[in-house]
């Protein structure tokens, strides 16, 4: 907003919010964005006819989904959905085994060695920059299709997230308490358990709950690449054009995600 205001009508001096350099940098960004947008629009391979009849196709798809295939729910969907919840929960728990040590190594006020901090940071970043679907593809290649690949994919993707946020919480701990406990001659383990942990505990639980919530959503799609859960049912139903079953599975996911969100809000209120 480079709105300029004339301070005095007679005066030639004008107040301007930004220096010319700042303004030209901003215009350069706008220019690049517009240019990139136009260049992408002109070169992207879109068949216009597909766009024009998209509403019609969508309507057709939803018409095929109705009525819902409720008989499929007890037969396959219920079991698969439970499997998805197990994948999300086990994956979250498993990730803690790696995330907590890495968070301790990454926190500068716990591990004084800059070199170890850097190593921990590297693992945390590596875990986060690979999407959970790619982790799942890798683990399906290693362990074969099934729940095990899903659990490991969820776990390894979560390590970076939980580890980063937990180590940030540890770094914000009030060091006076730590010092006081150290002054009594307490062992490092005691300092960790009685000085760091009580202060970082609320943040830890809230991060784990948040990640669990995300993992439930993510594990619902891991099955598309063969890593178990409701995604497998969804994929099979789509390949067989069983649209009512697809719709039932999607509605189940929707309902479970909503329920989990409500549950997380409730637990958070009690716990933190």
């Amino acid at each position: 907003m480079s709105a300029s205001i004339v301070t005095k009508p007679q005066d030639s001096r004008r107040w301007q919010r930004f220096t010319p350099l700042e303004r030209s940098a901003r215009y350069l960004v706008y220019l690049v964005v517009v240019a990139a947008f136009i260049a992408s629009l002109r070169t992207v391979e879109i068949i216009p006819e597909f766009l024009y009849d998209a509403p019609q196709q969508m309507a057709d798809m939803f018409r095929r989904m109705w009525p819902l295939d409720l008989a499929a729910y007890p037969a396959t969907i219920h079991g698969a959905m439970l499997e998805t919840l197990h994948i999300a929960t086990l994956g979250t728990l498993l990730s803690l085994l790696l995330a907590v040590p890495l968070a301790l190594l990454n926190a500068r006020n716990i591990t004084p060695s800059a070199w170890l901090n850097w190593v921990a940071k590297f693992f945390l970043v590596a875990s986060r920059s690979v999407n959970s679907l790619v982790w799942a593809l890798l683990f399906v290649a290693v362990f074969g299709p099934g729940v095990l690949a899903g659990v490991l994919a969820v776990a390894l993707r979560s390590v970076g997230f939980v580890g980063k946020l937990f180590s940030e919480a540890l770094e914000e701990v009030n060091m006076d308490t730590v010092e006081a406990l150290r002054a009594t001659g307490a062992s490092p383990l005691a300092v960790l358990l009685k000085a760091y942990w009580p202060q970082a505990k609320p943040a830890f639980y809230s991060v784990v709950l948040f990640r669990w919530d995300i993992n439930v959503r993510e594990s619902a799609v891991l099955g598309l690449v063969g890593a178990g859960g409701i995604g497998v049912v969804l994929n099979d139903a789509m390949n067989l054009f069983q649209w009512p079953k697809v719709a039932t599975a999607l509605l189940t996911i929707f309902a479970v995600v909503l329920l989990i969100e409500l549950l997380v809000v409730q637990i958070r209120k009690r716990l933190i």
Binding site: V44, E45, I46, I47, F50, L51, A54, Q57, M58, M61, L133, R217, E218, A220, V221, L224, L234, M238, L250, I253, F254, V257, L258
Partner: peptide, 25 residues
């Protein structure tokens, strides 16, 4: 927000066919 992008992508692929358009939507 409720659905994972990949699930939305599946629906759009069925609606507008394979390709970049489904990804954009």
């Amino acid at each position: 927000r409720t659905f994972h992008p990949v699930i939305i992508a599946i629906l759009f692929v069925k609606a507008v066919g394979f390709g970049a358009l489904a990804g954009i939507l």
